[in-house]
Protein backbone atom coordinates (compact mmCIF):
# COMPACT_ATOMS: atom_id res chain seq x y z
CA UNK A 1 0.00 0.00 0.00
CA UNK A 2 1.10 3.59 -0.53
CA UNK A 3 2.75 5.53 2.22
CA UNK A 4 0.27 7.79 3.90
CA UNK A 5 0.82 10.87 5.99
CA UNK A 6 -1.63 13.43 7.38
CA UNK A 7 -2.00 16.62 5.35
CA UNK A 8 -0.09 19.57 6.73
CA UNK A 9 -1.33 23.16 6.92
CA UNK A 10 -0.07 25.77 4.45
CA UNK A 11 2.98 27.42 5.94
CA UNK A 12 2.44 30.97 4.72
CA UNK A 13 -0.48 33.00 6.00
CA UNK A 14 -2.83 34.42 3.35
CA UNK A 15 -3.06 38.17 2.86
CA UNK A 16 -6.41 39.89 2.59
CA UNK A 17 -6.62 42.14 -0.48
CA UNK A 18 -9.34 44.15 -2.18
CA UNK A 19 -9.75 44.54 -5.91
CA UNK A 20 -12.36 45.31 -8.54
CA UNK A 21 -13.31 42.05 -10.19
CA UNK A 22 -15.42 42.37 -13.32
CA UNK A 23 -16.78 45.63 -11.96
CA UNK A 24 -17.53 44.34 -8.48
CA UNK A 25 -15.57 45.32 -5.37
CA UNK A 26 -14.11 42.09 -4.04
CA UNK A 27 -12.02 41.19 -1.02
CA UNK A 28 -10.22 37.89 -0.88
CA UNK A 29 -7.53 36.15 1.16
CA UNK A 30 -4.53 35.32 -1.03
CA UNK A 31 -1.56 33.09 -0.28
CA UNK A 32 1.23 35.54 -1.12
CA UNK A 33 3.01 33.19 -3.51
CA UNK A 34 -0.07 32.65 -5.65
CA UNK A 35 -0.28 33.95 -9.18
CA UNK A 36 -3.34 35.80 -10.34
CA UNK A 37 -4.23 32.69 -12.34
CA UNK A 38 -4.25 30.60 -9.16
CA UNK A 39 -6.32 33.23 -7.40
CA UNK A 40 -8.89 33.33 -10.18
CA UNK A 41 -9.17 29.58 -10.66
CA UNK A 42 -8.67 28.22 -7.14
CA UNK A 43 -9.51 31.18 -4.91
CA UNK A 44 -12.41 32.74 -6.79
CA UNK A 45 -13.75 29.79 -8.76
CA UNK A 46 -13.50 31.65 -12.06
CA UNK A 47 -12.41 28.81 -14.33
CA UNK A 48 -13.09 30.63 -17.59
CA UNK A 49 -9.48 31.80 -17.52
CA UNK A 50 -7.41 28.80 -18.61
CA UNK A 51 -4.03 27.45 -17.64
CA UNK A 52 -2.20 26.48 -20.83
CA UNK A 53 1.52 26.63 -20.11
CA UNK A 54 2.14 28.53 -16.87
CA UNK A 55 5.12 30.25 -18.48
CA UNK A 56 3.62 33.19 -20.34
CA UNK A 57 3.94 31.55 -23.74
CA UNK A 58 0.44 30.54 -24.84
CA UNK A 59 -1.88 33.38 -23.83
CA UNK A 60 -4.79 31.22 -22.63
CA UNK A 61 -4.70 32.96 -19.22
CA UNK A 62 -4.99 36.48 -20.65
CA UNK A 63 -7.09 38.82 -18.50
CA UNK A 64 -7.33 42.59 -18.45
CA UNK A 65 -5.84 44.54 -15.58
CA UNK A 66 -6.94 48.17 -15.57
CA UNK A 67 -7.91 47.61 -19.19
CA UNK A 68 -4.59 46.24 -20.39
CA UNK A 69 -4.29 42.62 -21.52
CA UNK A 70 -2.00 40.79 -19.10
CA UNK A 71 -0.98 37.18 -18.49
CA UNK A 72 -2.49 35.96 -15.23
CA UNK A 73 0.14 33.20 -14.93
CA UNK A 74 2.96 35.77 -14.80
CA UNK A 75 1.18 38.17 -12.47
CA UNK A 76 1.38 37.72 -8.72
CA UNK A 77 -2.05 37.87 -7.16
CA UNK A 78 -0.86 40.54 -4.72
CA UNK A 79 -0.05 42.82 -7.66
CA UNK A 80 -3.74 43.31 -8.44
CA UNK A 81 -4.51 44.83 -5.06
CA UNK A 82 -6.88 47.78 -5.64
CA UNK A 83 -6.76 47.30 -9.39
CA UNK A 84 -9.50 46.30 -11.83
CA UNK A 85 -9.31 42.74 -13.11
CA UNK A 86 -11.59 41.69 -15.96
CA UNK A 87 -12.03 38.09 -17.05
CA UNK A 88 -14.10 36.41 -19.74
CA UNK A 89 -16.91 35.95 -17.21
CA UNK A 90 -17.26 39.73 -17.02
CA UNK A 91 -16.97 40.47 -20.71
CA UNK A 92 -20.70 40.61 -21.42
CA UNK A 93 -22.61 43.84 -21.01
CA UNK A 94 -25.87 43.95 -19.05
CA UNK A 95 -26.43 40.20 -19.24
CA UNK A 96 -25.86 40.18 -23.00
CA UNK A 97 -22.75 38.69 -24.60
CA UNK A 98 -20.11 41.15 -25.75
CA UNK A 99 -20.26 41.68 -29.54
CA UNK A 100 -16.94 39.84 -29.78
CA UNK A 101 -18.42 36.84 -27.98
CA UNK A 102 -21.37 36.89 -30.36
CA UNK A 103 -19.10 37.19 -33.40
CA UNK A 104 -16.69 34.44 -32.25
CA UNK A 105 -19.58 32.02 -31.74
CA UNK A 106 -21.33 32.95 -34.97
CA UNK A 107 -18.37 32.72 -37.37
CA UNK A 108 -16.83 29.63 -35.73
CA UNK A 109 -13.79 31.34 -34.25
CA UNK A 110 -14.03 29.05 -31.22
CA UNK A 111 -13.37 25.40 -32.02
CA UNK A 112 -12.08 23.48 -29.01
CA UNK A 113 -12.64 26.66 -27.02
CA UNK A 114 -9.60 26.47 -24.78
CA UNK A 115 -7.82 29.50 -26.23
CA UNK A 116 -11.07 31.42 -26.62
CA UNK A 117 -11.31 33.25 -23.26
CA UNK A 118 -7.75 34.56 -23.50
CA UNK A 119 -8.19 35.41 -27.16
CA UNK A 120 -11.35 37.36 -26.35
CA UNK A 121 -9.64 39.36 -23.63
CA UNK A 122 -6.83 40.41 -26.00
CA UNK A 123 -9.34 41.17 -28.72
CA UNK A 124 -11.55 43.20 -26.42
CA UNK A 125 -8.60 45.37 -25.38
CA UNK A 126 -7.89 46.02 -29.06
CA UNK A 127 -11.50 46.82 -29.88
CA UNK A 128 -11.99 49.04 -26.84
CA UNK A 129 -8.93 51.10 -27.77
CA UNK A 130 -10.08 51.78 -31.32
CA UNK A 131 -10.73 55.45 -31.92
CA UNK A 132 -11.60 57.20 -35.13
CA UNK A 133 -9.16 59.99 -34.32
CA UNK A 134 -6.11 57.76 -33.87
CA UNK A 135 -6.76 55.50 -36.79
CA UNK A 136 -9.94 55.39 -38.84
CA UNK A 137 -9.24 52.07 -40.57
CA UNK A 138 -9.45 48.45 -39.43
CA UNK A 139 -6.29 46.64 -40.46
CA UNK A 140 -5.68 42.94 -40.21
CA UNK A 141 -2.05 43.63 -39.27
CA UNK A 142 -3.18 45.60 -36.22
CA UNK A 143 -5.54 42.84 -35.16
CA UNK A 144 -2.82 40.26 -35.65
CA UNK A 145 -0.40 42.34 -33.58
CA UNK A 146 -2.99 42.56 -30.80
CA UNK A 147 -3.54 38.80 -30.82
CA UNK A 148 0.07 37.73 -31.38
CA UNK A 149 0.41 36.51 -27.80
CA UNK A 150 -2.52 34.12 -28.00
CA UNK A 151 -1.94 30.71 -29.55
CA UNK A 152 -4.75 28.76 -31.17
CA UNK A 153 -4.14 25.21 -32.39
CA UNK A 154 -7.52 24.60 -34.03
CA UNK A 155 -8.67 27.40 -36.29
CA UNK A 156 -5.67 28.51 -38.30
CA UNK A 157 -6.68 32.01 -37.06
CA UNK A 158 -8.68 33.03 -40.14
CA UNK A 159 -12.06 32.99 -38.43
CA UNK A 160 -10.64 34.70 -35.37
CA UNK A 161 -9.36 37.52 -37.56
CA UNK A 162 -12.72 37.65 -39.31
CA UNK A 163 -14.67 37.91 -36.05
CA UNK A 164 -12.49 40.66 -34.61
CA UNK A 165 -12.46 42.53 -37.90
CA UNK A 166 -16.27 42.53 -38.07
CA UNK A 167 -16.65 43.89 -34.56
CA UNK A 168 -13.89 46.46 -35.03
CA UNK A 169 -15.61 47.70 -38.17
CA UNK A 170 -18.91 48.06 -36.31
CA UNK A 171 -17.18 49.99 -33.52
CA UNK A 172 -15.58 52.45 -35.94
CA UNK A 173 -18.78 52.80 -37.95
CA UNK A 174 -20.69 53.65 -34.81
CA UNK A 175 -18.10 56.23 -33.82
CA UNK A 176 -18.37 57.71 -37.29
CA UNK A 177 -22.17 57.93 -36.99
CA UNK A 178 -21.88 59.66 -33.62
CA UNK A 179 -19.32 62.08 -35.01
CA UNK A 180 -21.47 62.88 -38.04
CA UNK A 181 -24.63 63.37 -35.98
CA UNK A 182 -22.70 65.66 -33.62
CA UNK A 183 -21.33 67.63 -36.57
CA UNK A 184 -24.84 68.13 -37.97
CA UNK A 185 -26.03 69.82 -34.80
CA UNK A 186 -26.04 73.62 -35.10
Amino acid sequence: MPDTAPPSPVAVAPVLITLQLNGEPTSVAVPPHWTLLELLRYGLGLTGTKQGCDKGDCGTCTVRIDGEPQLACLTLALEVRDRHVETVEGLGVGGEPHPLQEAFARVGAAQCGFCTPGMLMSASAYVDNLTLQDDPVVRREDIAAALAGNLCRCTGYTKILQAVEEVAQVVLDRQREIEESTAEEP
Binding site: R41, L46, T47, G48, T49, K50, Q51, T87, V88, E89, L91, G92, P97, L100, Q101, E102, F104, A105, R106, G108, A110, G113, F114, T116, P117, L120
Partner: peptide, 20 residues
Protein backbone atom coordinates in the same frame (compact mmCIF):
# COMPACT_ATOMS: atom_id res chain seq x y z
CA UNK B 1 -26.07 31.80 -31.39
CA UNK B 2 -27.43 28.27 -31.63
CA UNK B 3 -24.62 25.75 -31.37
CA UNK B 4 -24.10 24.51 -27.85
CA UNK B 5 -20.37 24.45 -27.50
CA UNK B 6 -19.29 27.67 -29.27
CA UNK B 7 -21.65 29.72 -27.10
CA UNK B 8 -20.37 28.15 -23.89
CA UNK B 9 -16.78 28.64 -25.09
CA UNK B 10 -17.13 32.37 -25.66
CA UNK B 11 -18.88 32.87 -22.34
CA UNK B 12 -16.08 31.05 -20.53
CA UNK B 13 -18.58 28.47 -19.28
CA UNK B 14 -17.28 25.36 -21.06
CA UNK B 15 -16.01 22.94 -18.47
CA UNK B 16 -12.77 21.03 -19.13
CA UNK B 17 -11.34 18.45 -16.73
CA UNK B 18 -9.38 20.99 -14.70
CA UNK B 19 -12.47 23.23 -14.41
CA UNK B 20 -14.72 20.63 -12.80
Amino acid sequence: MKPQDPLLHVLGQSVYVDDL
